[in-house]
Simulated scan of single mutants.
Amino acid sequence: MFPMLSCENLERSLGFYRELLGGTETYRFPEDGPPAFISLRLGESEIGLGAMGSGAPLHGQALRPAQGHRIELCVYVEDVDATTERLRAGGVPIVLPPSDQPWGERVAYVSDPDGNLVMLTR
């Protein structure tokens, strides 16, 4: 599965997924000029980030306003606490600070620039 997010501000989302979470760019369209779509590798997974643009989307469904909890992304990190603090320092909203879970993982929840929940776990 390859999740793709519609981003209100692609540069802001790139700052989150590429700069703060360490994603590596694997694809860009178009290759020259401002991008409309970028794929990033995070660990062994990839995510697509697409600029919302001003025209109607191909599928014809409205991209905004989205209501409620639409999607939750899980990102495995080396150190949940250190990653959460780095994101906090970068201005990222912390939804749930790091905590140990009964199933053995340590998790934290943050919000990406478009309001999507991102679970950080180890």
Rank of each mutant, 00 (worst) to 15 (best):
M1A: 10
P3D: 02
P3H: 06
C7F: 05
N9I: 12
L10E: 05
L10F: 08
S13M: 01
S13N: 03
L14V: 04
F16V: 04
F16K: 05
F16C: 05
Y17C: 07
R18D: 00
R18C: 03
R18P: 06
R18Y: 06
E19H: 13
E19N: 14
E19T: 14
E19S: 15
L20W: 11
L21V: 11
L21I: 06
L21G: 00
L21Q: 03
G22Q: 11
G23F: 13
T26A: 09
T26W: 08
Y27D: 08
Y27S: 10
R28W: 06
E31P: 07
E31C: 02
E31G: 06
D32I: 04
G33N: 08
P35G: 03
F37S: 04
S39H: 13
S39N: 09
S39L: 08
S39A: 07
L40T: 03
L40V: 00
R41N: 10
L42M: 11
G43N: 11
E44T: 14
S45M: 06
E46K: 15
I47S: 06
G48E: 11
L49A: 00
L49H: 00
G50Q: 15
A51L: 08
M52F: 01
G53A: 06
S54W: 04
A56K: 15
A56Q: 12
A56D: 10
P57H: 07
P57I: 06
P57V: 06
L58C: 06
L58W: 15
L58G: 04
L58T: 09
H59F: 12
G60E: 11
L63N: 06
L63H: 11
R64I: 05
P65K: 13
P65V: 06
A66C: 06
A66S: 13
A66V: 13
G68K: 15
H69M: 14
H69Q: 14
H69R: 15
H69N: 13
R70I: 12
I71Y: 13
I71V: 10
I71Q: 11
I71P: 01
I71N: 09
I71S: 08
E72G: 12
E72S: 13
L73K: 04
L73S: 03
C74A: 08
Y76E: 03
V77L: 01
V77D: 02
D81S: 08
A82D: 03
T83D: 02
E85D: 03
R86M: 08
R86W: 01
L87F: 10
R88Y: 03
A89M: 12
V92F: 05
P93R: 13
P93E: 01
I94M: 01
V95T: 08
L96E: 08
P97I: 02
P98S: 10
S99M: 05
S99I: 00
Q101C: 06
Q101G: 02
P102C: 08
P102Q: 09
G104V: 14
E105K: 15
R106Y: 07
R106D: 02
R106W: 11
A108C: 13
A108S: 15
V110L: 11
S111N: 12
S111F: 13
S111W: 08
D112C: 00
D112S: 01
P113S: 05
D114H: 00
N116Y: 05
L117Y: 02
L117R: 03
V118K: 00
V118G: 01
M119A: 14
L120N: 07
L120V: 07
L120I: 07
L120S: 05
T121M: 02
T121V: 03
R122D: 02
R122F: 04
